[in-house]
Design a protein around this nucleic acid. Structure first.
Lengths: 199, 199
DNA sequence: CAGCGCATGTAATCTGTTACATGATTAG
DNA sequence: CTAATCATGTAACAGATTACATGCGCTG
């Protein structure tokens, strides 16, 4: 319902899921992009501090954004008989909406689902070598993410008007450095003769 | 299908969602608990490094665990005509299964959905005072979590045989301290006259 | 010209949440 | 004695993922 009748698709406004705002946020930088491009960009930027939605969800959100009047799409047909893709551009209403969202909606707190810690929490089911393996693996992962963030941050710093992305990339760089150090600290805790003893 | 026919409920084994393993992990500490108790305990311990499932999901997972033969429930009827609740206890098969899961299943990497960073990533839609507000609010949140973890870690350290929980609580304590420091660092970045300049 | 991978999407499924229903106990 | 709150659960819904379908373009 609601989408029946000739109701010229004017903004249904109201509740978009956060993912929808994230996609609209990607578009708010002004470029005209396809779902595929958005996914790749989301992996590279959003993925460092927010999870990156799957292709199918991005396509779904784009359809919803267009229905709400926040984005407009057009079919781009290439010279030869190539596939023909659909690209999206944000509308003025969309820009106003995402700005209002960013300013007025209460920020929901960070959500963490830390797989490695979930394992180590069950230390009574593991032996020390397995715990070490989990931690070193996690340490390496954090290190890789740190390197990625470092590179991207350096790159973003060159582009002006990218204050936001540059800021959060810098944050991510520090975050993953901290994550790596925390893994190292825990490895030391495990190696320590007995109870960590509060200093 | 599959659940039809009198197939005496013997372990269907195979794929439990991670949440299922987390609940079974809670039970693996040996206590007999109701869904309500599990929820409260999950909020206090799991919630610091992994999200805490809702009541309804816990109830659902418990039913699934029992069907799989990993837990057994019984109705506890109180002396007077009180409500009568259902408590769960892990079975030997359940303990073996969760141990095998903890040891053999590849650890999935940490998942982060950082609401505050999502906002700051859209800095071009905010003005400086709004950015500061997001950050100070986040800083306070991290500080509160830090205090919680600190208390719980101290408490867990007294109980022996709680190596795992104590270890992860200690990790959480450091994690939220780092999170608070990162927020402070970003506040300084914003205040800084211009580009952060890589030292 | 056969097969593999990229690019664009759709459909089916499953995980997890919010809203609701029920009863018992406690506070005013 | 009524209202609020705790405790236990169920049902309906929404968000998100995996699997599938399609077609072009390149490599062997």
């Amino acid at each position: 319902m609601a989408d029946t009748a000739g109701g010229a698709g004017a903004a249904e406004a109201a509740g978009l899921p956060v993912t929808g705002w994230a996609v609209l946020g990607l578009l708010s930088f002004g470029r005209e992009l396809s779902g595929y491009d958005l996914k790749k960009w989301a992996d590279a930027s959003l993925g460092l501090f927010y999870w990156s939605p799957s292709f199918s969800q991005i396509y779904g959100e784009l359809r919803r954004l267009e229905r709400a009047g926040y984005a407009r799409s057009r079919l781009v047909a290439p010279e030869s008989g190539s596939r023909g893709k659909r690209t999206y551009r944000i509308t003025d209403e969309g820009l106003a909406a995402v700005r209002a969202w960013a300013r007025e909606t209460p920020v929901d707190p960070p959500v963490l689902k830390h797989g490695p810690m979930l394992r180590l929490w069950l230390a009574h089911l593991l032996d020390p070598s397995e715990m070490r393996a989990v931690l070193t693996h996690h340490r390496d992962h954090a290190d890789r993410m740190h390197a990625r963030a470092r590179l991207d941050a350096a790159h973003a710093a060159t582009e002006p008007a990218w204050a936001g992305p540059a800021l959060t990339l810098r944050w991510a760089e520090r975050y993953y450095a901290a994550e790596r150090d925390l893994a190292d600290a825990m490895l030391r805790d495990i190696e320590a003769p007995e109870g960590p003893a509060e200093p």
